[in-house]
Amino acid sequence: MRINGVEIEDTFAEAFGMQAAKVIITAVNERWAAIAAQTATGFATSIIGCGCEAGIDMVLPPEQTPDGRPGVVALFFTTSSKDMEKQLISRLGQCVMTSPTSACYDGLGSEIKLKIGGKLRFFGDGFQGSKLIEGRRFWRVPMMDGEFVVEESFSVCKAVGGGNFFILAETLKAALSAAEAAVEAMRKVPGVIMPFPGGIVRSGSKIGSKYKGQHVSVNTAYCPTIRNQTESELPEGVNAVLEIVIDGLDEAVISETTRVGILSACQPGVVRISAGNYGGKLGPYRFHLRKIMG
């Protein structure tokens, strides 16, 4: 299969189950909502070293937020709901509560709830108060700029993490240009994040290492500079590879994001689109590139 002359390899991206939370962060204006959201989703590129994967899903207009102020939707992904609770308490507590004029709300409304605002409220030192409407409790914690409003509980749901595809290009410039175009298009799909810097990762990994205690290591098969020292997967003429990793609220949204991304990535200078196939070791979800693009 070829799209715009770019080969779509007959392979699949392997992904795994995760837990997701959707947090709506609002503030006095979009700038401050974005600052709070960016800070809360910082250092959250990979579950391996960051504790969670997180990113900004979309910007919400005032009409679509619970308090009628500009907002941003941030998605958080962890391997368990226990980890999610820990991550949300620290990230919302340290990054959103601290940000001027911010407030944050549950954006999922599923049945599995984690008490987040119900724990952050203790920062109020006895002067916090709550408001209840239609079964949803909102805590009001006094702050030096007024009040921080945070919902008592945040929902988690089953989600899919680690969807991906590789862009194999003749030059780094072509790979980066294609990846940037892909991420720009993919960001328009709701319900997904691309957690790595700018949505792009150059340090694609494989499971295992020659070193004890190192559970993952660089995906040597896709590193052009050691092509002849390893069992390389790179075709002739490929000198740079970039990967886009996708976490989404369900399989369908990852498939759609992959489709949109690959379509945009098939640009001049790109030789092949491949994916992180780990032979079934990584997880139960498989995203067949040709099926998705068909």
Binding site: T26, P66, D67, G68, R69, A103, K131, I133, E134, F138, R140, G146, E147, V149
Partner: peptide
């Protein structure tokens, strides 16, 4: 003197129920 965000949450809900609330004052 401050701007209580919780009022906006409540008023937003009231408006969704169809109550004709003047949004200017709530903000």
């Amino acid at each position: 003197v401050f701007q209580p965000v919780f009022i906006r949450v409540f008023v937003n809900r009231l408006r969704q129920w169809g109550l004709p609330v003047n949004i200017e004052r709530t903000e």
